[in-house]
């Protein structure tokens, strides 16, 4: 069926605006004890509006596959989220955050062949790197909180050097992808991002892990915003930026509430074990 889209571009933009306002109201509601639950429902409503809009606004192929994939994702996540014990919620949030970052990275990877100019490729490599860091970093935080690995800070002698090397490789391959648009190299960028995510979270002690989850949450927001730039989708830009900005503030507030600084948490172990075990 090749019918033209049901919604005109103006209506699409207006409905995305409704969704964006819902997300702002959701964050606002979640900040006050009285309205928190309603805020969350408003956010879910906004997401529903956005999903209806995307199906009505463009001529999509593979619809049965897409619906099937959505059913699979929901069927995995919803029961887990409903049944999880209160004490295990932080690691579940970390997991959901990680898969969101992974999704952003995959979307960016697939858009690379369609990127017409270098600026779009810059947004793509940013999404690849940050999405992969968030995915792998969240995986490590999950393992720490679930006690699949030690909750103590993991440090070894060569770690700062190794991180430096990874950083150089990341910037180098990212620059090559921007210059050439090679999909093969983009996969390398993803892989380097995964390594960077693991190395970034290893030195963080168990007590500080919730703050790192919040930081990675902000990272995923930024990755989503960048993927919005790549796709030319204003809603993704707004929603991703909102999460990136509010997540950054929230990370600082959480650290302050524990009497710690964000840089102390992330890099404290490098300076001689000032991170809490």
């Amino acid at each position: 069926m090749l019918a033209s889209p049901v919604l005109a571009p103006t209506w699409t933009a207006l409905l995305y605006l409704v969704a964006a306002v819902c997300f702002i109201l959701a964050l606002k509601g979640l900040s006050s004890p009285k309205h928190a639950r309603r805020g969350n429902l408003i956010g879910a409503f906004g997401a529903f509006v956005a999903l209806v809009t995307v199906f009505l606004s463009s001529r999509l192929q593979n619809l049965p596959w897409i619906f099937g994939a959505m059913v699979v994702g929901a069927a995995i996540a919803a029961p887990v989220a409903r049944r999880v014990k209160m004490t295990q919620m932080p690691q579940l949030v970390a997991m959901f955050n990680g898969v969101g970052g992974g999704a952003a990275g995959l979307v960016a990877l697939l858009e690379l062949p369609h990127a017409e100019n270098a600026w779009l490729r810059v947004a793509i490599v940013f999404t690849l790197l940050v999405g992969a860091i968030s995915f792998a970093g969240s995986g490590v935080t999950f393992a720490k909180l679930q006690e699949l690995m030690t909750t103590r800070p993991v440090m070894f002698a060569g770690l700062p050097v190794l991180m430096g090397v990874v950083l150089v490789v990341a910037v180098g391959t990212a620059a090559l992808v921007v210059a050439t648009g090679s999909v093969g190299l983009a996969v390398v960028v993803l892989a380097v991002g995964l390594v960077a995510g693991v190395l970034l979270v290893l030195p963080v002690g168990g007590a500080d892990v919730p703050i790192v989850i919040s930081l990675l949450n902000a990272f995923t927001g930024l990755a989503v915003a960048a993927s919005g730039l790549v796709l030319g989708n204003v809603l993704l830009v707004v929603a991703g930026t909102l999460v990136g900005a509010s997540g950054t503030i929230l990370t600082r507030l959480m650290a302050a509430a524990m009497g710690r600084s964000v840089s102390g948490i992330m890099f404290g172990a490098f300076k001689g074990g000032s991170t809490a075990g």
Binding site: L51, I66, N97, A103, A104, V224
Partner: peptide, 25 residues
Amino acid sequence: LHTPLMSGANAIHGIILVGAITVAG
């Protein structure tokens, strides 16, 4: 409310689903 707010913001960036659907379509 720090943890619920973080979790709510986490849900909001799940809207990358719109991007994933667009690419899949």
